[in-house]
Write a protein that binds this DNA or RNA. Structure first.
Lengths: 200, 200
DNA sequence: CCATTTATATACCGATCGGTATGAAATGCG
DNA sequence: CGCATTTCATACCGATCGGTATATAAATGG
């Protein structure tokens, strides 16, 4: 079952984790392949052999980010008793991630490639798709709330989802700008106070 | 009064406008000095003679952006009859700018350098300061509303300002991701529905 | 043991990066 | 006019960009 040639001398998953943190900190264009290789503890040919190219490595890093930082958000959405509490908890879980002192600040999907050179447009579009998907998850949760009766029948699920997705992206920027967890908590308090007005 | 040496053959203000649009579209790191010079219709030595260096040109471009796109927002804040209507109008003026088909999409202060290489940290900090200043303008307007009696005495001006600044930054990202003016208008409807809950 | 396969480290590729030296061209001043 | 001053266009700078050729090292299959 063992592989055929010389075994890889580094832990691919560990290297990917390190790459994720560099991209998260400096953004896609602000990170060079040489920096990546150094942070990953490997040489460039090993990086290219294991991950393909800079863009492919970045996409894998985003997927890892989604798994590690995004999964608790998805769980919060699923497990909340009502759409309202599910979305509120999702926001609070995100806020905790955005300000975790062990992490770079803010949301990697928001901060790492909002604009870029034309040749990097695929990267920007990839992240935009990712953000739309998060909003879609909010929308599905509101629809479920309508089905389960905790959200009024006439509520506009897309509108609710768009509002809280907008707040979430705004929180990511606040976090990048140095906002504390407490500050984000108060912002979420404000956003949740709008629930009846938005979801009715 | 005329200048001494050979007169400049290009319009400095027009060149700066063109540079602003490129930075706005591709971001600070996504824009090269060669691209800038080409878009400005000048050669690189002329660019350096007139604007100093890439970072100084970017800072001037941001200042121009503040004057052209930010001034109407400031006017809206000043001229609104109440803090609530002033902030609502400010958001709507911003939304119009973010989706103006003649402009790159979104807010230049948000999209052009959220993350970057360590050597470009001054640029990111400069934009973060700028965003904080916008929030501070909101806060001052709420304080005025308290003085003038259209906002309850007990309202937390900083909290109100932080909430609407967060929404505004979220709107900038929505716009980058392709949101229409109508969609942003509906998001602002939602945010303003929260007013009583946030400012009380 | 030998052949094959894969990963390693070094050194390199052309292209582009931000920035500049250089000399000709165009003005005001005397 | 001649001279100082400033801008112009071209061509260039060392450094770094994303990516790779090459040769060696380390494993498995036979």
């Amino acid at each position: 079952m063992a592989e055929r040639g010389r075994p890889r001398a580094f832990d691919r998953s560990e290297a990917l984790h390190r790459a994720m943190r560099v991209f998260w900190t400096c953004g896609y264009e602000g990170t060079s392949v040489s920096e990546l290789a150094q942070a990953m503890g490997i040489n460039k040919p090993s990086l290219y052999a294991a991950f393909g190219c800079k863009e492919a490595l970045f996409r894998e890093a985003i997927e890892l980010y989604e798994q590690e930082e995004g999964a608790p958000v998805g769980e919060a959405l699923d497990q909340g008793r009502t759409a309202r509490s599910a979305i509120e908890t999702a926001l609070r879980v995100n806020a905790r991630s955005f300000t975790n002192p062990d992490n770079p600040r803010g949301c990697m999907v928001v901060v790492s490639a909002l604009a870029g050179a034309p040749e990097n447009n695929p990267v920007c579009s990839f992240l935009a798709d990712n953000r739309r998907e998060s909003e879609e998850n909010f929308r599905r949760r509101v629809l479920r709330g309508i089905e389960e009766g905790d959200v009024p029948r006439g509520a506009d699920a897309a509108r609710v989802a768009a509002f809280y997705a907008t707040v979430m992206n705004g929180l990511a920027i606040q976090a990048r700008d140095g906002a504390t967890m407490e500050r984000l908590e108060r912002l979420i308090d404000s956003a949740m106070a709008a629930w009846e007005a938005v979801a009715s």
